[in-house]
Lab assay of single mutants.
Amino acid sequence: TLFEALYDYEARTEDDLSFHKGEKFQILNSSEGDWWEVRSLTTGETGYIPSPYLAPV
């Protein structure tokens, strides 16, 4: 399942991933609570992002 960003987000740590509203992601790991490890389909980068900022496509 692909997810889309509902809002912009600016990374706060080196493990976070900055992204823009509308960017699409592949979920790599969603078992860590509200922070999911994802791969951006736009940039190819991986990192953690807050799951409340995402919605299924």
Rank of each mutant, 00 (worst) to 15 (best):
I27Y: 07
Y9W: 09
G44F: 07
L41F: 06
Y48E: 02
T43V: 00
S51Q: 07
K21P: 02
I27P: 02
L54G: 03
K24P: 03
S51A: 14
D16H: 15
W35S: 07
E23L: 01
V38I: 02
A55M: 09
A55N: 08
T1M: 14
I27H: 02
V38H: 00
V57E: 08
R12H: 11
T46Y: 07
L6N: 04
R39P: 00
G22T: 02
L17Q: 03
I49R: 00
P50W: 15
L6M: 09
E32M: 14
F3D: 00
V57L: 10
T1S: 11
Y7G: 07
V57G: 05
P56H: 06
Y48T: 08
F19P: 00
T43M: 01
N29Y: 06
D8W: 04
D15V: 14
H20M: 11
S51F: 11
S18E: 04
I49Q: 00
T42W: 12
T46G: 02
S18C: 05
P52N: 15
H20W: 07
E45A: 13
E4R: 05
T42R: 13
K21G: 02
A11C: 06
S30M: 14
F25A: 00
D15H: 15
E4Q: 10
Q26L: 14
Y48R: 14
F3S: 02
P56M: 09
L17Y: 06
Y7E: 09
F3W: 15
Y53I: 09
R39H: 05
T1A: 12
L17K: 04
K24H: 10
A55R: 10
F19Q: 01
E4D: 01
T43A: 01
P56S: 07
P56T: 06
L17S: 02
L6A: 04
P56R: 05
S51V: 10
G44P: 01
T42V: 11
E4S: 05
I27S: 02
T13F: 15
E23V: 02
E45P: 00
W36P: 00
S30L: 09
S30V: 11
E45T: 09
R39D: 00
L6H: 04
G33F: 09
V57S: 07
E32G: 14
L2Q: 06
L17I: 12
Y9C: 07
E23R: 00
N29Q: 08
Y9R: 05
L41D: 02
T43F: 01
V57P: 05
E37A: 08
P50T: 05
A5G: 02
A11S: 12
A5R: 00
G33D: 11
S18N: 06
L28Y: 02
E23S: 04
Y7I: 11
E37W: 15
L6K: 08
T43P: 00
F19A: 10
L2P: 04
S40L: 05
I49F: 00
T42N: 12
H20K: 15
T13G: 15
W35F: 10
L54C: 05
P50C: 14
S30W: 12
Y9Q: 03
F3H: 06
H20P: 04
D15I: 12
W35P: 11
A55G: 11
S31W: 09
F25H: 00
G33H: 11
T43K: 03
R39Q: 08
A55L: 07
Y7F: 13
T46W: 08
S40G: 02
R12I: 12
Y7P: 00
T13P: 05
S31P: 09
L6I: 11
L54Y: 04
T46E: 08
L28D: 00
Y7A: 10
L2D: 04
A11F: 03
K24V: 14
L28M: 08
T42E: 15
Y48V: 08
Y53V: 09
S30E: 09
D34V: 11
K24R: 14
A5D: 00
R39M: 11
K21M: 07
S51Y: 13
E10Y: 10
Q26E: 14
S51M: 09
L17N: 02
A55F: 09
E14W: 09
E4V: 14
W36Y: 07
G47A: 03
S40K: 13
P50G: 05
T46M: 08
K24T: 09
D8R: 02
E23N: 06
G44E: 04
E10F: 10
T1F: 11
E4F: 11
H20Y: 13
N29A: 08
D8E: 06
P52K: 15
G33E: 11
E4C: 08
S31Q: 11
A55K: 13
W35I: 13
I27K: 08
Y53E: 05
G22Q: 01
E23D: 15
P50V: 03
F19H: 01
D8F: 03
G22R: 02
K24D: 00
H20E: 08
L6S: 04
F3R: 03
P52F: 15
T1I: 13
I49Y: 00
A11M: 04
L28A: 02
G22C: 05
A11R: 09
V57H: 07
S31I: 09
K24Q: 13
T13I: 07
S30Q: 13
Y48I: 10
P52W: 15
L41Y: 05
L2W: 10
T43G: 02
Q26K: 08
E45C: 13
G22V: 00
S51L: 06
E37P: 02
P52Q: 15
S18R: 04
N29G: 10
E37C: 13
S40W: 02
D15Y: 15
P52M: 15
P52E: 15
I27N: 01
L54W: 04
E37L: 15
D34Y: 15
L6W: 06
T46R: 11
D15G: 15
D15W: 15
F3E: 01
V57M: 08
G44C: 10
T46L: 07
T13H: 14
D8V: 01
Y48M: 12
A11K: 10
Y7H: 09
E14M: 10
P56G: 06
G33W: 10
A5V: 04
Y48F: 13
E37N: 08
P52G: 15
S40F: 03
K21F: 05
I49T: 03
L2M: 10
F25T: 00
